[in-house]
């Protein structure tokens, strides 16, 4: 098992429906491979925290600057849809955790079912998100067709926001809340989509019998990513929909 004899380290398959795992040649042991993968992924997740952290800092800054804008803006969002999406993500986080557990215990069909349910949760989340975005578009709060039309220096108004004289009249910089809402939820939604694609990828590997008690690192890492998506939303929900 040492480096010099070039004998590949193979983790045997626990059953006929699985395939053995060959440890990558640049690792000496399965544990080293596992821990290197985990270390790298936790580092990546730390950068994700910092990415969203910048957005949260912007939220707190402008919330402090224009509290009324945020209060009235938050009232334009449907907290029931937000709470529903929170529950959908929490449930999908649970199915993901159970999926990883099933892979750890070499239960192939259970892994497939739990991963599929997680993808279903991701799809449900995005459908609800789409319904919300559509309503904002119709009410002129976020006009998606004019997102990149620019900013009028003279009036201080943006072209994608048509509601300066509507529900947001009387509060300064009415577009500010929706600007932050869209940026945070869209980047979060992008993570949901990427997460769903990653889960579908490990479903393919699961179907091929690659993941079992001896080797389940990819399922574990995709699971960590999915929980991070949940983690971010746990803070987004009260801040955007309930505006403390």
């Amino acid at each position: 098992m040492s480096h010099d004899d070039h004998h590949a380290v193979v983790i045997p398959a626990p059953g006929p429906e699985f395939v053995p795992h060959t440890v990558a040649h640049h690792f000496s042991t399965p544990v080293q491979e596992f821990q290197a993968g985990k270390l790298g992924f936790w580092l990546f997740l730390a950068t994700e925290i910092l990415l969203f952290g910048g957005l949260f800092a912007a939220y707190f800054y402008f919330h402090e600057l224009f509290p009324e804008t945020f209060r009235v803006g938050g009232e334009q969002l449907d907290w029931r849809l937000g709470a529903l999406n929170t529950s959908v993500l929490l449930l999908s986080s649970w199915t993901m955790a159970m999926g990883v557990r099933s892979a750890q215990t070499s239960q192939k069909s259970k892994t497939m079912i739990y991963l599929f349910l997680t993808v279903l949760g991701a799809a449900g989340f995005m459908v609800i998100k789409f319904i919300e975005y559509k309503a904002k578009n119709e009410h002129g709060l976020i006009c998606f067709g004019h997102l990149f039309d620019g900013y009028d220096m003279a009036s201080g108004q943006v072209s994608w926001f048509k509601d300066y004289d509507g529900v947001m009249a009387g509060v300064p910089h009415g577009h500010m809340f929706f600007s932050i809402y869209l940026t945070m939820t869209a980047i979060h939604g992008l993570h949901v989509i990427i997460g769903a694609i990653a889960i579908i990828y490990v479903m393919r590997g699961t179907a091929m019998g690659r993941y079992h008690a001896g080797y389940y690192l990819p399922v574990d890492l995709v699971g960590l990513y999915w929980h991070l998506v949940d983690l971010i939303w746990i803070f987004l929900f009260p801040l955007l929909y309930l505006v403390p």
Partner: peptide, 12 residues
Amino acid sequence: GHAQGELDMGHT
């Protein structure tokens, strides 16, 4: 975490 007992994964 493994049935074969050949490799000690030590992380499960």
